[in-house]
Amino acid sequence: MFTKWKTSISIPQLITISSPVILLIVWEVLSQTAIIDPRFFPAPSLIITTLIDMAKSGELFDHVSVSLTRILFGFILGVVPAIIIGLIMGMYRYFRFFFSPIIMIFMPIPTLAMLPIILILFGIGEFSKMMTIAISVFFPVVINTAAGVSNIDKIYMDVAKNYQANAKDFFFKIALPGAMPVMLEGIQMGQAIALLTIVAAEMIGANSGIGYLIWMNYKAFLIPQMFVGLLLISFFGYLFSLLLRALEKKLLPWK
């Protein structure tokens, strides 16, 4: 039995797994023995049973699917124009000169601070939540895409020119694939920001979603239910970054 363990899990993997496991055990023990107040820090086992109960009643899926829908569409709404504008900025310096100041003006403003304006512009429906995510995702992606294009080694531009690539071929064979690695880093960043934004936005101005779930249960002093919300965010954050990493492997076989 022992030898089998040894062959399937390496020491670094074991250490990596050990830290969250230790955290959970310590938390469980401290909470069960009431060394930390179990009203504010319920034991992990209780949080899990609460999660199962909430899943059974169906309310969990409603909140999760609402948040995921907002994230998905908001993400697309932000990433697509960001990639297009970023590529154009990277390829043509006059566009870069033109767009840079506008981006610099809006980038430092937290998207949440713009929530009132977003609500005025897009109403209180689903679309305004998607737009909130779209705006927050837009900036890291547009900046990384532009940087990705301008960091492409000049020699590939020379190769493309020497072999008479037209504008369309240059875009698809040189600019886009050459910018891809840095662009995907921007998308990875955008993904983290999207999650951050949606939870905060749902806490402020929504009546559904994971953020709403956390805030409402806190107000109602249903602390285990609140922790379920936190657990879900952590889980989806991890899942998204796994998905993006898989996408990266698929898109960048040459790296």
């Binding site: 080694d153 020699i155 590939y156 020497n162 050459g178 040459w254």
Partner: peptide
């Protein structure tokens, strides 16, 4: 081109 001229993503 010199050695770097081969396009890495092709």
């Amino acid at each position: 081109f010199q050695e770097k001229g081969v396009i890495p993503w092709l």
